[in-house]
Structure formats: C-alpha cells, structure tokens
Nucleic acid binder design. Structure first.
Lengths: 186, 186
DNA sequence: AAGTATGTACAGAAAAAACTTTACAAACAA
DNA sequence: TTGTTTGTAAAGTTTTTTCTGTACATACTT
C-alpha cells in the first residue's frame, strides 16, 4: 500500500473518529454509556449494515456486549435490524433521522414518568381531600398542612399537564411549525 | 399524643412520602441519583428551609452526602441558599418553579453538548473539504467516501442549528406561547 | 486569644454498573 | 440425525459511582 494513499485514508478515518468520539461522550443525554454511544456513531458513519461480529471486531469488545448494546439502541429507536438476502447473521444499521430520535426519546421518557408521577399525585390528593372533607376533626395546624400540600400537588398536576401538551406537539410534529427545520423556509 | 391525631398526621405524612418517593425515582431525568431526588422532594414539601443537619436527620444520611447533594441541586438551579436572620447554619430551600427548572436544565445540558459536537464536526468538515479540494489525487472510492461523510456532517450541523433554535425558544419563554401554561387562556 | 460550630476535601468502604467469559438454546447445514 | 453457527442468559470480574468517616479550614462565640 503506497504511503500517500494510507495518509489520505487516515485523514478520512480520523475525521470520522473525532465525531464518533464526541457522539460517544455526549450520548449520556440519551441515557447510554460512551461504549453504546460509540457503537451508534460507528453505525452512523457506515454505509452498509454491520453484524455483531463486525461490531465486536471494530470496537474490540465482546460479542455479548455488542448484543446488549444493539438491543439498547434498538429500544431507543436509534438502530434497526435489516434483512439482507442470503445473509445468515443479523444485520443492523443506524437510524439517521436525528430529529425523530430526539423527539421520540424525550416523549417516551417523559410520558412514562409523567404517568407514574400523576398516579402518585392523584392518590395522595384523594387521601388528603378525604381527610380535609371533615374539617371539624382536624387541628388548625393539620388543616394548614393539608392545604399547603394540596396546593403543591395541584401545581404539579398543572405542570405535568403542560408537559403532556408539549409532548403532544412533539409527537404530532407540530413543533416543526414552531421551530422550522429549515430557517429560510418558515 | 392521642391515637387519632397520630393517625391523621400519619396519613398526611404518607401522602407526602408517596410523592417524594416517585420524584426520587424519576429524577434520573435530571441526571441525579434517587438520594438526591429524595432530598429535593423533601425540600419541596417543606414550608421552611432546612439546614444540612436537618437533612441528615430527616434522610438518615451523612452530613457530607447532604453537603454534596445540596451542591448538586444548587448547580441544577433546583435549590437555593436562603439567608435567615440570626441563623448561623446555612439554610436551603427548594426552588418551586418546575417549568423554569425544566427549561433551564435542558437548555444548559444541550447547549454544552451542541457546542462541543459542532466544534468536532466543523474541524472534521474542514479536513475533509481540504482533502477534497484537489480531487485529482484521490481515488474514486476515496472521493465517494468523503462525499458521504461530508453529507452526514452537514446534516448534523443542520440538526444542531435546529436544536439551538428550539432552545432559544425555551430560553426566551416563547415556548409558552406555543404551549400555554394555562390551556383555558391561550 | 482559646474554644466551638459549621461546611467540605479527601481517603476509603460499600454498592451499582459495565463488561467478559462461559454455557446453552434455537436455527441452520450437511 | 449430527454437527455448526448465531445470539443471548447467567455468573463472574472489573470498573465506576455513591456514600461514609475522618480530618481540617474557616468563621463564629466567649
């Protein structure tokens, strides 16, 4: 292999690697480790799908790790299995619509949490309101305590309702009317 | 202390604790541990500020942990130190504007990452474009490889520019015109 | 000034997470 | 059927994170 060709390939490789590495380090925003981030970055720059053995080779990690990492990325809708005629091994490639990944991830994460939190809030609200329904049995400080707690819970409910509306906009893509993908074409 | 009063206090306490616990478990969305989440939840339901010793007592943890947890929450703009006349110990209370906390957190987190990623992308783009500026020295497959990488980097740039615009809307509060806090008063 | 209270840095222990090796089940090949 | 290949579960190891106890600097009190 001639020297200059090797240099050029190296430059191209380095340019990709730099970006892969920053992706790797910043994927904690999606709740994954740098290793998993690096795998996504590697797949992102590939033009053809990879098998678990390709990944193992490329990232110098165990096949088991590749298997679990790919599953994580698949669950996050960042990677998908593709079927290739005549290929026995499973093949994976990166999903490349970053807007979609961003919106999906936040919507999914938050919807789950909002639901769980609202459930707890509503249970507690009910208990407190039941207790407050007969004020005569309560001391003054108890009444005050309940009122304050109820006020906080109501506030939380409003907040979660707002979040739900925000994620509705994310899910329906209407967010792109508010913040356009192409700033020149609003 | 009479039995019924104890029951009523218990019910109130339980109602708060349930919500504190769900907050604790879901604060991973803000990148903090359940312990730190529990501290925030505890502070949220307090009507008066707490000292490190109060927290240590309440959560049965070391004072050192309380100190570092409070610092973390302060950095996240979720807690603030308040000055109380004649009090020697530092006092802390929860910030209670959850909309603000949400917007601040995501804006800060993402701005940092966007900046770092864009820097890497631009460096790599420059290297690749320099290399591509003299196509005569490149093999066909190298040219193609560079083109594909450049296209991906350009795409990323557009995406990060969009994110920046989205967070501009967050920062300027214009997001509340798009998704109103009070759905009845749009 | 000496003594005490307060908050945090630092080192170490405990707990949790990430990763690897081994083992095995399911699918395919001969 | 028997032998391979492929993917993943389970157990074990390594690394990282979280939490605690000690030590100490700073600031307050008398």
């Amino acid at each position: 292999m001639d020297q200059k060709m090797s240099n050029r390939q190296d430059i191209i490789e380095k340019a990709k690697e730099r970006v892969i590495e920053t992706i790797s380090l910043n994927m904690h925003l999606y709740g994954v480790t740098p290793s998993i981030g690096r795998l996504y970055g590697t797949l992102f720059f590939r033009d053809t799908p990879m098998t678990l053995d390709d990944m193992k080779e490329e990232l110098q990690m165990s096949k088991t790790s590749m298997s679990t990492s790919v599953r994580t990325l698949t669950d996050l809708n960042m990677v998908e299995k593709v079927w290739i005629k005549g290929e026995r091994k499973d093949q994976y490639e990166a999903k490349k619509d970053w807007y979609q990944i961003f919106l999906d991830y936040f919507t999914n994460q938050w919807r789950k949490v909002i639901q769980v939190n609202l459930k707890a809030i509503n249970e507690s609200l009910k208990e407190l309101e039941d207790l407050a329904s007969d004020p005569s049995i309560l001391t003054e400080s108890e009444q005050e305590d309940i009122e304050k707690a109820v006020a906080k819970l109501m506030y939380s409910k409003e907040y979660y309702a707002w979040l739900n509306r925000l994620f509705d906009q994310f899910e329906s893509k209407e967010i792109f009317e508010f913040v356009n993908k192409d700033p020149q074409n609003p």
